[in-house]
Amino acid sequence: MKVYILDERGKNRDQLQYWLAEDIKTGTVETFEDYVRFIEKVGQSPPDFCFIRVGKSKIPGLITSEMVRQVSADIRVVFISNDRDYAVDAYEVGAYGYLVYPLQRDSVARLFRQ
């Protein structure tokens, strides 16, 4: 399984990357800070899951998620944010999940259980 994370560097992202690596067992978890590099990689090598940060001015999360969906409707997009304000928008763009920092171990794991 291939998973990409688009978020700024920091403890939160490290934690998510660590947990994801545990959950997916086999595969890779790659991280990106720049949405252009990220979307380029998605185009070249589409992942199964993307975690995209919303609510940060440097990352246009909602538009990026639509760009991902344009590459393939099969890629599951999960938003991550400091607040709950974008959850309705997340539904609007057809996101698969929405996680709020600080993350709960189980809320990450259950994304892969469905």
Binding site: A90, Y91, A95
Partner: peptide
């Protein structure tokens, strides 16, 4: 309630 909706895997909101 949209975040809870995601927790319940609701199809849409």
């Amino acid at each position: 309630y949209a975040v809870e909706a995601f927790d319940l895997y609701a199809l849409d909101y």
